Amino acid sequence: MPKMKPHSGMGKRVKVTGRGKIMSEQTGKRHLLEGKSSHVTRRMTGTVEVAKADVKRIKKLLGR
């Protein structure tokens, strides 16, 4: 049976905390920033917990 290999791209995008939560950067802060207010762009800084619907898929990609 071949080895399970984690998805290297997903490993660069998310971080697993000590308690097992999956954290990622907030979405929506890459482009089209002129149209967004500074209040909105400030709110999008930092990391957030990944949506519950995506956790199973992401854990599979990470090989966990």
Rank of each mutant, 00 (worst) to 15 (best):
H31P: 03
G35P: 02
K3S: 12
S24W: 04
A51D: 12
G9D: 10
K15T: 15
E49C: 01
R64T: 01
G9V: 07
D54R: 13
G11A: 02
R19G: 07
L62D: 08
A51R: 11
L33P: 01
R42F: 01
K52D: 15
R30Y: 11
G20C: 09
G18V: 02
V55A: 04
I58W: 05
G11S: 07
K3M: 06
K36N: 02
T17G: 05
G63P: 04
L32E: 12
K21Y: 09
R42M: 01
M10N: 01
G20Q: 08
M4W: 07
V50Y: 06
S38P: 08
S38W: 06
K36A: 09
K36Q: 15
S38I: 10
P6Y: 10
I58C: 04
Q26W: 01
G20Y: 07
M1A: 11
T45L: 09
G46L: 04
K29D: 08
K36T: 00
G63L: 05
M23W: 05
E25Q: 10
Q26P: 00
M23F: 04
K29N: 13
R42H: 06
A53S: 14
K21R: 10
G9R: 12
H31R: 15
H39A: 11
L61M: 15
V14L: 04
H39D: 09
K59P: 01
P6E: 08
M10K: 05
A53N: 12
R13E: 12
K36R: 15
K21D: 14
D54Y: 11
K60A: 15
T17W: 04
A53C: 06
K5N: 11
H7D: 15
M44P: 00
E34Q: 15
G18S: 08
E25N: 09
Q26S: 13
H39W: 00
K29A: 10
T41L: 15
Q26L: 06
V40N: 02
M44A: 11
P6A: 14
S38E: 14
I22F: 05
